[in-house]
Design a protein around this nucleic acid. Structure first.
Lengths: 242, 242
DNA sequence: TTGACTTATATGTCTAGACATATAATCGTG
DNA sequence: CACGATTATATGTCTAGACATATAAGTCAA
């Protein structure tokens, strides 16, 4: 084994100090709550100036691995809870960022007085006007996702005049309506006849489903259901923990 | 108003420099790709030593707000787009919070030297030891999700001694190992024979798939694949936007 | 025992230098 | 023009100090 050459080839001193401490925390040798050696002790151990160990400890503190308290010392923090930031840019950005050409096709648009089903979906009681939209997003001319959306016109009156034949409703809303809250529900289904045709996949093929509800201060703006071919599309959420 | 005394009461110089730059980035005054002033220019502007502006810029770099390139300068990074906070607590919390009883069953556990496939999955080059685990989570004695996990022992040596026959590896890791970064990939598949049996669903039924990779400062900790019955389970992400 | 005051100390910030190192830009050559 | 060598320069790291500041701990009086 040519591994474990811990001492040699360290990039820089402060990084080595940081890595050393990090290792002890990760292995559990220094459990949460454990007091890390004082700066002056680390200075003695590594034979460097205080600024060098301070830089190592400051970075560990910025990364929330340790907590520093004046006069008391530095302490290992408890591991953080899990939460992920799920990035869902608008569809055009999502597709073009993959280096593929974006295509959009409005399949259906209807302005109507909200039906009972519409009201339930939007979570509103009054029967105002809504726009129902069905459209398809494609990447390199291959169906990427189909969208089934309902917009509450009493919350977004301007949407009645928007031209959704060229601009996807998601983009339009993103650029015209600020939102304060949203909820995503992710599930999986198998494609029925209609979905299979729209996505150009086989009946019975897996589909990833994202339902998104968007509000602005307790007022529903829009409800959208996105269907992705489940075996080809992957929704990636990269995030920083803390 | 006694507030808004911007110039007075500044905490420290480097924090003020950091806040100034952060503000310009967040307001869009300095868009992504924009080169922020060189250190020596900031030194002149703020009348301080280089170490002070260096500390401010280093922290912005650690926070991924800017990117620093030798000889070239420091540049504003692309900001994150729309994002949702997807909370995925550990499985026990997820199930008990639904008011259902949690059940756990270790199906398979093996400590081995990383195979080529393991290394690729973990994104590591060196062939260290890994633990491969397969287990099942159930709610009210009904299969809820099956888990297929790989833990990199060179990152989490203690995991070799953990008893995963009673405690789910996710819980153990959550309580023993802090993470800094993770990536989720969500997709959908239809159940094959083995999956169908493990989840007690029909072959060909939809399954929601979550692949999660977790790192601690560029070091892979674990890779896990979770399979949920797609028609019964719903993954909810509620979040606040701007 | 409790509260107020004092002190010791670990971290927080800062300086004015130094040398190292990666690399964009320039220059020179075939 | 293409390509390798050289140079200039911005960042990366480090030092040996300094003073500031929050606060744990000790002290003392009510």
């Amino acid at each position: 084994m040519s591994l474990a050459t811990d001492t040699a080839d360290q990039p820089t001193l402060y990084k080595r100090i940081r890595a050393d401490i990090e290792k002890r925390i990760l292995t559990g040798e220094w459990p949460p709550g454990h007091r890390i050696p004082f700066e002056h002790e680390l200075v003695a151990r590594y034979g460097c100036s205080r600024m060098t160990v301070n830089k190592a400890l400051s970075e560990l503190a910025q990364a929330d691995l340790i907590e520093r308290r004046r006069r008391a010392g530095s302490f290992v923090r408890r591991p953080q809870h899990q939460s992920a930031v799920l990035k869902i840019a608008d569809m055009r950005a999502e597709i073009t960022s993959l280096g593929r050409s974006y295509g959009y096709e409005l399949m259906h648009r209807k302005l109507r007085t909200a039906t009972a089903a519409d009201r339930q979906r939007l979570g509103v009681k009054k029967a105002g006007k809504v726009i129902a939209i069905a459209c398809r997003h494609s990447a390199d001319s291959v169906p990427f996702a189909v969208e089934d959306r309902l917009i509450d016109l009493s919350s977004v009156p301007d949407a009645a005049n928007a031209d959704f034949s060229c601009e996807p409703p998601g983009s339009w809303l993103l650029h015209h309506v600020p939102w304060t809250e949203a909820e995503h529900t992710i599930s999986a289904i198998v494609a029925d006849d209609r979905t299979a045709e729209a996505l150009d996949i086989a009946v019975g093929a897996p589909c990833l489903v994202i339902d998104r509800y968007t509000w602005r201060s307790a007022r529903t703006i829009t409800a959208v259901r996105l269907l992705y071919p489940g075996d080809s599309h992957r929704l990636v959420a990269r995030f920083k923990g803390g």
